[in-house]
Amino acid sequence: MNELCLPPELSGEIAAIYQSMASAYDQTAEKISLSCTGCSDNCCDSYFLHHTYSEWAYLWEGLKDLPKEQLDRVIQRAQDYISQSRLVLARSERPQLMCPLNEGGLCSLYSHRLMICRTHGVPATLTSPDGRHHRFPGCFRCQEIVNKTYARPTDAPAMERTALFQRLVRLEMRLLGELQARVPRVRLTIAEMIVNGPPRVTINQN
Rank of each mutant, 00 (worst) to 15 (best):
N2W: 09
E3S: 09
L4T: 04
L4I: 07
P7D: 07
P7H: 02
P7Y: 07
S11H: 00
E13H: 02
A15V: 07
A16K: 13
Y18S: 06
Y18F: 14
A22N: 14
A22V: 15
S23R: 12
D26T: 12
Q27W: 03
Q27Y: 08
T28M: 03
T28L: 04
I32D: 09
L34S: 05
S35A: 12
G38I: 11
C39K: 05
C39E: 12
S40V: 12
C43R: 05
C44Q: 05
S46Q: 15
Y47L: 02
Y47A: 09
F48Y: 14
F48C: 14
L49R: 15
Y53V: 00
Y53G: 03
Y53S: 00
S54Q: 07
E55K: 06
W56E: 06
Y58C: 02
W60A: 01
W60I: 04
E61V: 00
E61G: 03
G62P: 01
D65Q: 13
P67E: 12
E69M: 10
L71D: 06
L71E: 09
D72Q: 13
R73K: 12
Q76F: 14
Q76N: 11
R77P: 09
R77K: 14
R77I: 10
A78N: 10
Q79S: 07
S83E: 14
Q84W: 03
R86M: 10
R86E: 14
V88Q: 05
R91E: 15
R94G: 04
P95C: 01
Q96S: 15
Q96L: 14
L97Y: 12
L97G: 08
C99S: 15
P100R: 04
L101N: 04
N102C: 13
G104W: 04
L106G: 01
C107Y: 11
S108Q: 11
S108C: 03
Y110V: 05
I116P: 00
T119V: 14
P123N: 01
A124Y: 01
A124D: 00
L126E: 05
L126T: 08
L126F: 11
T127L: 10
S128N: 10
S128G: 09
S128Q: 10
D130F: 00
H133D: 13
H134T: 01
F136I: 06
F136W: 10
G138C: 08
C139M: 06
C139L: 06
F140D: 14
E144P: 00
I145M: 03
I145H: 09
Y150E: 14
A151K: 12
P153W: 03
T154C: 06
T154H: 05
A156Y: 08
M159D: 00
E160A: 11
E160N: 14
T162Q: 10
A163G: 14
L164P: 01
L164I: 07
Q166C: 06
R167G: 03
L168N: 11
R170G: 01
L171P: 04
M173D: 15
L176S: 01
E178C: 13
R182V: 10
V183G: 07
P184F: 13
A191T: 10
N196G: 12
G197T: 06
G197H: 07
I203G: 05
Q205C: 07
Q205L: 08
